[in-house]
Amino acid sequence: MTDRDRTGRYASPPCMAGEVAPEYFDPLAVDPDQARDVARWRRAERSRLRAARQALTVQERAAIDLALAGHLRDLLETRFGALRGRGLSAYWPIKGEPDLRPLMSALHEAGVTIALPLVETRAAPLVFRRWSPQTKMVRGDWNIPVPPPEAEALTPQITLAPLVGWDCAGYRLGYGGGYFDRTLAALSPRPFTIGTGVQAARLKTIFPQPHDIRLDAIVTEAGPQVLPGPGQS
């Protein structure tokens, strides 16, 4: 890992969604005033949670990364059994996000097809390009390294969603651009989606709105989180 990697200047484009589309607003909300109140609350919570995450020490980050990666691999193997041949979309860490790149490399060596999400068209669903430790990245939108255009496009069976915050109902507080929700809504079949983040970012609720899509699982350094079944809250 280079010093530039450690500073978090580079990432897959979805992680920059809040900067890309800070005006993102759900047009399907039942009550526009309520939706705007939630949007303001979410902006404040994003700032608070990101500051807390950035304040973690190097040692704390390393411990979180190691524990989370172990729990995540256990969950994948328990849920899916043999992983060889399956497609998994991961992400490039920024802004103190858990760094799962060693796990990405290990899964690649185990025969998992790894992809990274990126933005080809703004305010549209993400696309996924195949990645390996040998991939020569190119500069995409916002000067961010991404797999090159000739990299294989694919639709993953499993996708990891970085969490700024999360609640026990299985909803994700992301960066505010709406890219992940747009993507999940557009994919059929929808991939099994796992939120990954720090335990301290748990919220009582994110006040889910009509565009928010529940995750299938959440994993933190404390382990997989128990989510309510369909129809439960």
Rank of each mutant, 00 (worst) to 15 (best):
P14W: 10
L227H: 07
F80G: 07
G170I: 00
T78M: 15
I194R: 06
I158N: 02
S132P: 05
A185R: 15
Q34S: 12
R73F: 10
A169W: 01
F128N: 03
A153I: 03
R61D: 08
F207Q: 13
T196D: 01
A17H: 11
Q134M: 12
D212T: 02
R214A: 14
T159Y: 02
S188D: 15
I64V: 14
H108Y: 04
R79E: 15
R61G: 09
R50S: 08
R202Y: 03
E60W: 06
P93A: 09
T205K: 07
E60M: 07
I114G: 00
G111E: 02
R42M: 01
E60K: 04
A11G: 13
R6S: 04
V112G: 02
A115G: 12
P13T: 06
R101H: 07
G176H: 12
S12N: 07
P27W: 11
G176Y: 15
L203H: 06
V164E: 02
G96A: 01
V38E: 00
C15Q: 15
R122L: 14
D181Y: 09
L56H: 03
A90E: 02
L28Y: 12
A69P: 10
D33V: 08
L72H: 04
P117E: 10
L215W: 04
T155Y: 03
A200G: 09
S105V: 14
R84L: 05
L187R: 10
G8M: 01
L100D: 10
F128K: 00
L163A: 04
L76V: 02
S188G: 13
W142E: 06
Y171D: 00
G197F: 04
A21N: 15
P230A: 12
L66A: 14
R61W: 06
I144A: 11
P98W: 03
D37L: 14
A161Q: 01
A82H: 14
A52L: 15
D141I: 14
L28A: 15
Y175P: 00
G70T: 05
R48A: 14
I206R: 08
Q199C: 07
P224H: 13
E97Q: 10
I64E: 11
T57V: 01
G70Y: 03
L56K: 09
V58T: 03
R101G: 01
R101Y: 06
L187A: 10
D212C: 04
P162H: 04
R43L: 14
D26V: 03
P191W: 00
L184P: 07
Y171K: 02
W142N: 03
E23W: 15
G231N: 14
P162M: 06
G177C: 12
T205G: 11
G165P: 07
L227Y: 08
F128E: 03
P133K: 01
E97S: 08
Q157H: 15
D141G: 13
P98M: 05
L184Y: 02
R139Y: 12
A35Q: 08
Q225M: 15
G170M: 05
